[in-house]
């Protein structure tokens, strides 16, 4: 189709440029990575990839990324919906804040979150703070210290050093993707479709489920995929909040860095290839979902 309506002339030139661009920036480095990993013998490669520390790090990376992407899927959709559908004070400001995770260096984000959730941080030590406050108040009233120091520790956010903390920062870095992919679709949405569904007797839940959601599904799915991919590759923020204990709270990118520090370049490359392969498979599945949800756009 597009062949008959060329906006930019010179198909060979543009195609050639595209292929060169992709090759130089994506394919070549990937091939180099695979080649590097290929320097190891088969058994050696197997030993690296089945190392419990490595498998644990891969599991953590993909589990945390999946959870973060799913959380963003739900809340990103709600945020996008709210920003488009409702008018409220400072809406534009909130809209601008969405892009913050894009702009903020992720190391800074990690540091901020770590400070919040550390045992003596604002949120991390909330139980301790309240206990201390009550005890201090009781003390000035001459009642001694009625509460043991760990009385409210169940309120303390168990994020730091654990998977929870990693998920929180991954949600943070992935937040803009779902919002920014779904938002334009909602903005262009013609309310006439809703009126039509309403005139046919559909209630709000039915209208959302059967009329609106299928329309935003492709964008939503690709937003989730982007958030997931971003989370898998995230390094800077995670290492600040995670305890980074090998085999327990180390993400795969950190494993790679660790191997590089030990001058084990081939091993690092092998873990990289494993990370890449799994990501690619996940993205392929998501892509399949997306094109399935776009099937009605095909022309006869």
């Amino acid at each position: 189709m597009s062949r008959h309506h060329r906006v930019i002339p010179g198909l060979p030139l543009t195609l050639g440029y595209t292929l060169f661009y992709l090759s130089a920036l994506v394919l070549l480095p990937l091939a180099a990575l695979a080649l590097k990993a290929g320097q190891m013998s088969g058994p050696e490669l197997y030993r690296v990839l089945t190392d419990p520390v490595v498998t644990a790090s891969l599991r953590l990376t993909f589990a945390a990324s999946t959870i973060a992407a799913l959380v963003n899927a739900v809340f990103g959709l709600i945020v996008a919906w709210t920003l488009v559908r409702y008018d409220f004070p400072f809406r534009r400001l909130f809209d601008a804040i969405i892009d913050f995770p894009f702009a903020l260096p992720t190391a800074v984000a990690g540091l901020t979150f770590a400070n919040l959730f550390l045992k003596d941080g604002w949120l991390g030590g909330v139980g301790g703070h309240i206990t201390a406050g009550i005890n201090a108040l009781a003390h000035t009233l001459g009642l001694g210290a009625p509460l043991p120091a760990d009385a409210l520790d169940f309120l303390t956010f168990p994020y730091t050093g654990q998977t929870g903390g990693i998920v929180v920062v991954l949600i943070f870095v992935g937040l803009p993707f779902v919002v920014r992919t779904v938002q334009p679709v909602l903005l262009e949405w013609d309310p006439e479709f809703e009126t039509a569904a309403r005139s046919l007797g559909a209630d709000s839940a039915t209208i959302f489920r059967r009329v609106i959601f299928p329309e935003i599904l492709p964008a939503w799915v690709s937003g989730v995929a982007l958030a997931f991919a971003r989370a898998v590759g995230e390094y800077g923020s995670v290492i600040f909040i995670a305890a980074n204990i090998p085999g327990r709270s180390q993400i795969a990118p950190l494993q790679i860095v660790t191997r590089l520090d030990d001058f084990q370049y081939a091993q690092a490359a092998a873990i990289g290839v494993a990370l890449l392969t799994i990501s690619l498979l996940v993205l392929l599945v998501i892509n399949g979902l997306e094109s399935f949800s776009r099937r009605h756009e095909r022309q006869a």
């Binding site: 006439e192 569904a197 559909a202 009605h296």
Partner: peptide, 28 residues
């Protein structure tokens, strides 16, 4: 609107794009 039992045909039809003809008609 939904309770008035009216049939409204919109100027640009407002057919649901992701539903085939059958499902569009069966929607109500």
């Amino acid at each position: 609107l939904g309770k008035r039992r009216i049939g409204f045909v919109f100027q640009h039809y407002a057919l649901f794009k992701h539903m085939n003809v059958f499902e569009n008609i069966a929607f109500g």
